[in-house]
Design a protein around this nucleic acid. Structure first.
Lengths: 195, 195
DNA sequence: GGCTGAGTAGACCGGTCTGTCTACCTGGGC
DNA sequence: GCCCAGGTAGACAGACCGGTCTACTCAGCC
């Protein structure tokens, strides 16, 4: 399917995904029209419809690629940390690196879901992303030996969401360190509950 | 200006605001067009432009009314609580009441900001709302006697945001109780830091 | 050398968007 | 009785939307 040429000149598919990633993320999937994307990609309109089938599927592909990149980013951050406790906190460090980028515009899934219909492809992609994050926190919490890993994971996920939202809405990258500090308190409290 | 007739038949302004509140909140300020609103309000198009000047100003008025209602809701919840600690937690209870409503669709300001231009009236309204929430948490934290009320307020605001976001994205109203439990841990930890 | 698949350029379609405008109605105060 | 503010109904403008379609180009492979 995806032959990942990459070495040679980028295919129309790659150019479209790259343009979609840039424009959809910067201005929103509703606001940005097909014409802007094909122009920015330097690609014919027919290529978009032959390759993806329509705007909705292009949005889906854009979100899936965001999911994959976020997964790699968080896992890389986690594997560079030592103790289980530090691995949990490393998630917030990895997230916080994004906040300092001047093109940071909030969580792509939150933005895309804002005006999405119930049951849409956007909702599916968001659900998949959120489930993965939850699982990551749950696995790390279990490794840390807390009595109720699901409970701690849920609380940390709230902080994770809140940090991304605050970094965007308040235009304040320090949300990551605030979330990290709060996470440390919650983790230590959960660890203190061990028998 | 606003003579608040209310007793007699609702004015065009009131009908428009009511329709905007319903449709904008349920489907998004981008998705819902002028025509849908004036039809739902049973009002002529000219009335909208005479009264508000345009869609952007109508959105602004819609957000301002949401802000006012949310402020009343949270303050009512807080004033019903006893100790300073309970007053802080009451914010999450008041927020959680919203989550159980089947028409809950997330934070209106987050949704409206998702695809808003930088510097727009939407951003102004969101900033005002968020500043008010932050001040509420800060004042309550100060009343509770924690050493660094701003720090605790910031952390609780993260949980508040995360709860609203999770209730929407995960379609799970129990986000409020999870946030409340996490908030209790953070509050108690902050209180334990007192000299 | 000819075929094929991927891609290009751009006209075109029906529909929708915000916003403007004209023309008409109507009830309450003077 | 008259006026007029505030409202209604709806045509209209100009832009843009997602999507379809035709006709053409061109590189690589058999």
């Amino acid at each position: 399917m995806t032959r990942t040429p990459s070495a040679k000149a980028p295919t129309a598919r790659e150019r479209l995904l790259s343009a979609a990633d840039e424009l959809f993320y910067a201005e929103g999937v509703q606001t940005v029209g097909i014409d802007r994307i094909i122009e920015h990609a330097g690609v014919a309109k027919a290529s978009l419809y032959n390759t993806f089938g329509g705007k909705e599927q292009l949005i889906r592909a854009y979100l899936d690629s965001r999911h994959a990149r976020m997964r790699e980013r968080l896992l890389r951050g986690v594997e560079g940390a030592g103790s289980p406790r530090e691995r949990l906190l490393a998630v917030f460090d990895a997230q916080g690196e994004l906040f300092t980028r001047r093109d940071y515009h909030g969580c792509a899934f939150v933005a895309a879901s804002a005006e999405a219909r119930h049951g849409s492809a956007i909702e599916e992609a968001s659900d998949a992303y959120r489930a993965w994050v939850r699982t990551l926190f749950t696995d790390l919490a279990r490794d840390a030996g807390v009595p109720q890993p699901e409970t701690l994971a849920r609380q940390l996920h709230l902080l994770y969401d809140g940090a991304g939202l605050s970094a965007r809405m308040d235009r304040d990258p320090s949300a990551a360190t605030a979330a990290r500090a709060a996470a440390a308190v919650l983790i230590d409290a959960a660890l203190a509950d061990r028998a």
